[in-house]
């Protein structure tokens, strides 16, 4: 037993004496070193962005998308064990479809997150399963406006104005806090998202990455979750790189002094 610690981390079904579920905590470790994902709640919608770490130069550029849709009006970005994220999204789609088949109305974002939250929580209760190795950012618009949530392996979820997960989360959160959320437009949100991902990538400098940005807003996309148009993407990247350079210059100035 001693070689494997206290043994309380071997099962979901057993608490440690101080009331912790170690498996759930370990699941969060799977997220901590993954590529950064952020979500920004804006005046008229939500922006999602991910720093997609390129694990191989042989991967096809611009493919293997990481941001996914749960329904027309709901998008997801997650960091962690990717297959877990894919499974999470599939469950979300099933829930959205099941709601619509009964009520003939698109599911509202808070109701969707309630349902998937319950599902994720279930994976922390049984000995036969392990928790989800992801943090997922779920954003969308419905009749009540824009919504942004982040859900953790424990199944807990909170509503946010801006949220960041993955390796660069601290840097990203610091930047998000400087923004006037949720009072900026989604167009501004897109630019900031690109900038923040570029900045957060400093924490993961040795690896190549690809930027992905999606948005969902009543005014810009008619309430549909979509990847942003190429021109907007290029502009956002340009803005991000300029800001990034400025910052480096500032850094250099500091060094000179």
């Amino acid at each position: 037993m001693s070689s494997i610690g206290t043994g309380y981390d071997l099962s979901n079904a057993i608490f440690s004496p101080d009331g912790r579920n170690f498996q759930v905590e370990y699941a969060s470790k799977a997220v901590e070193n993954a590529g950064t994902s952020i979500g920004i709640k804006c005046r008229d919608g939500v922006v999602l962005a991910v720093e997609k770490i390129q694990t191989s130069k042989l991967l096809v550029a611009g493919r293997n998308k990481r941001i996914q849709s749960i329904d027309r009006h709901i998008g997801v970005a997650y960091s962690g064990i990717i297959p877990d994220g894919r499974h999470f999204v599939n469950r979300g789609r099933d829930e959205a479809q099941s709601f619509k088949s009964l009520y003939k109305d698109p599911i509202k974002v808070p109701n969707l997150i309630d349902r998937v939250g319950l599902y994720v929580q279930n994976y922390t209760c049984a000995n036969s399963v392990r928790p989800f190795g992801i943090n997922a950012i779920v954003g969308g618009v419905d009749d009540d406006g824009a919504h942004l949530y982040m859900i953790e392996p424990s199944g807990v979820y909170w509503g946010y104005c801006g949220t960041a997960i993955g390796k660069g989360r601290q840097t990203a959160k610091a930047e998000l806090e400087k923004l006037d959320l949720p009072n900026i437009s989604v167009k501004d949100g897109v630019k900031e998202a690109a900038r923040i991902i570029y900045l957060a990538h400093e924490d993961n400098k040795d690896k190549e990455f690809e930027l992905e940005i999606s948005w969902v807003s009543q005014s810009e996309t008619g309430g549909r979750h979509e990847f942003i148009p190429q021109e907007l993407f290029d502009a956002a990247v340009q803005y991000a790189q300029e800001e990034d350079d400025d910052e480096e210059e500032e850094d250099e100035d500091v060094e000179v002094q």
Binding site: K65, I67, Q68, R72, R93, E226
Partner: peptide, 15 residues
Amino acid sequence: ERILDDLQVQDSYDM
């Protein structure tokens, strides 16, 4: 109409 709408939602999953 509902069946075809579901089909369109599934088609839009890849965005």
